[in-house]
Amino acid sequence: MKKILVGLKRVVDFNVRVRVRPDGSGVDTDGVKMSINPFDEIALEEALRIKERGEATEIVAVSIGSSEAQQQLRTGLAMGADRAILVETDGPLDQLSVAGIFLALVNKEKPDLVLLGKQAIDNDNNQTGQMLAALWDRPQATFASKLVLNGSSATVTREVDAGLEVIEVDLPAVVTTDLRLNEPRYVKLPDIMKAKKKPLEHIKVAELDVAVSQELKDLSYEPPPQRSKGVIVEDVAALVSALKAKGLA
């Protein structure tokens, strides 16, 4: 196997508790910490391990979005990706368009494996990998917690609701990562310096031959209904009577 394409989406850091803007136009992202989507870090880590085992030769990190996503790509390069591609868009795109952009890059780069996160923790869509696989007419192995490459195919263990499902897919294929696939490495300072010299290519969406749209209209955002803080009981006896009072015990 030669090339692995990895998606790195820039998202609000998982530790940030986001707030809906008072006018309902979106969530507040001003001055909020942004990071690589956690599942994408796992995807990149997996790619690095595959390369370190000698089963791949090149890792290309891809981000689609504003020019600020360069930061996340630089982090990806510091982790060990060989080069990066930023597809610059003006404004938000729907997920089918994002998958279409990935397809255009796949046709250009001809990777043997595409590793994406199972879900971006901002829109919580959980779609891109499946959509890319469909458009590309190739296999998908979503929610991977184990990935074994055997030449022209891969054996993937998937975290499904019933437990663990093992499937075999022919390559090239799209694999999306779950949390237990691996633990991503930390970036070391010298690697950040070295990463500055690695190639980061900028492409404008218009340069790719893909139709993009925003078909799903986001009408308004609202905060979720809040659960109110309850009572603290003194002891087990008080807990049991509180449960009994609610008819729960």
């Binding site: 986001v18 089918l96 901002d122 919580d124 959980n126 955002y221 905060p223 979720p224």
Partner: peptide, 28 residues
């Protein structure tokens, strides 16, 4: 496109869904 996690139906083409780990509810 696909719509994920419908939590309420507001019309034949209008739905609510959670985003940001449920910290915001989006009408789409």
């Amino acid at each position: 496109n696909q719509l994920s996690d419908i939590m309420s139906v507001e019309g034949a083409n209008r739905f609510k869904r959670p985003v940001y780990a449920g910290n915001a509810i989006l009408t789409v």
